[in-house]
Design a protein around this nucleic acid. Structure first.
Lengths: 246, 246
DNA sequence: CCAAAAGTGTTAGGAGTACACCCATGA
DNA sequence: TCATGGGTGTACTCCTAACACTTTTGG
């Protein structure tokens, strides 16, 4: 194993991408040949961290190396450190052996990431070789490696909490967005239809969601007003509490 | 160093105790002789984890060994893993050398704990040797070791978030409590006076805060109604969202 | 002119806020 | 009888929720 790595500590990146209609999650393949059969499991991008590297930096580096994504919103979740977390399935061990992973206890620090997929076509289509976006409701049918299903569940819960309490929906949107796009995020994440008029009334009260002098183009219906999120205004007004309870 | 330990991973316990009037925090001394002087710094109870031990179990064990507290509410916070976190001060290194700590990168997983100090006199007075409760507003004047001030700030923020969104105030109270005690917790934690009538109106709507057929005794004023928190009722009613926003 | 999504106002009920006095007990 | 905290109601404002039709564009 690479001598620069700490054999006991890894990071994983649980990245959510929104493409205007679906919430997606970024996974990489973990192919393994075990007891005469080939298995394609999926896992989050992740690896052991380097000895001289801050956790946040590790997460950025590993995400970039394994998928090509960079400069996206990333935030640390809680550590997962059960003693048996890398041995849920016999083929988990086979894979670790195959990649020359030392026989060590590993705790992992998952990071939670957000990215917009609707415009930035690069992210959507040109991922590194083993990475793929999956709609979150298809994940339940995938074979996930190690304890990555637990991590996924926790990250999804965190996504809901964060969207309720912080202005993070904008990380899932392009810089200029319509109110319908914003509403759709909340509808998809909370799996709940929202009333258009009430939603807009609420947004109208938030000064940091700023209408631009610009409209949608090239849509075959009445073009929508475009808005932007002003971080400056948010920070000035909102030393306090955000509330997006639905 | 003890061969059973992982040299790169520690846990810390950030325990808040409420004694009916003040919010307190549990610290242990870190005495060190450095360049001809004696220093008494303070730190959170914490240590490296064992190779065969789940994180939660480590936290419970280490808290018990270093302070005597056990069976209290504990919840994991996020990891702190800056490369320089154990070297903020020259005497941090001196101490690590003195306790035969290997020259390794260590990330720490802090746990957030809650305990009631008003009745359970044991916790208040009979702590293990080096442990002491400090009112949180005195902590700013204490010399804290390593990055423990960052951890403290994060834990305090978490305490506020948790009390806003979950029925955790009861972990800071005895099993039978008065509404004034409950109100005082929110006043102290959020540093804000609350209106008694409005507070009680809000509580009256929460079915899981149950009045008992019992009153305070031996107080030199009108005795207060006692209440209990029913976890059962809470879980049945509240698959959803708690809101204690003030 | 049709399809598609954008945009807009009113009403009723519930929650939050501000505010002041009497009550029960021990000393 | 005094000191101490316990306990209670009302009015106003603001937020939430329910609900349906017209507008603008491209095809």
């Amino acid at each position: 194993m690479d001598k620069r790595l700490i054999p006991n500590i890894s990071v994983d990146a649980v990245v959510f991408g929104f493409d205007d209609f679906h919430l997606n999650i970024l996974l990489v393949t973990r192919p393994v040949y075990h007891e005469g059969k080939n298995y394609i499991d999926w896992k989050f991008p992740g690896d052991l961290i380097r000895k001289d590297e801050d956790l946040d930096v590790s997460a950025e580096r590993i995400l970039y190396e394994q998928t090509g994504l960079q400069k996206i919103y990333l935030k640390q979740l809680k550590a997962f450190g059960d003693t048996n977390r890398l041995k849920r399935q016999p083929r988990d061990m086979t894979w670790l052996y195959a990649i020359d992973h030392p026989e060590e206890r590993v705790i992992t620090i998952p990071y939670f990431g957000l990215v917009n997929l609707s415009e930035d076509v690069d992210y959507k289509t040109s991922l590194n070789g083993n990475a793929r976006w999956f709609p979150v409701d298809e994940v339940k049918d995938l074979p996930l490696a190690f304890d990555h299903r637990d991590i996924f569940t926790f990250a999804l819960e965190t996504l809901r909490n964060e969207l309720r309490n912080q202005p993070l929906a904008f990380e899932l949107l392009p810089p200029k967005f319509t109110l319908s796009q914003l509403q759709r995020i909340y509808e998809v994440v909370f799996e709940k239809k929202l009333d258009k008029r009430n939603f807009r009334k609420k947004i109208a009260g938030l000064r940091y969601i700023v209408p631009l002098h610009e409209k949608e183009t090239e849509v075959s219906h009445r073009p929508a007003q475009l808005y932007m999120f002003s971080k400056d205004i948010y920070q000035k007004l909102h030393t306090r509490q955000f509330d997006f309870t639905i």
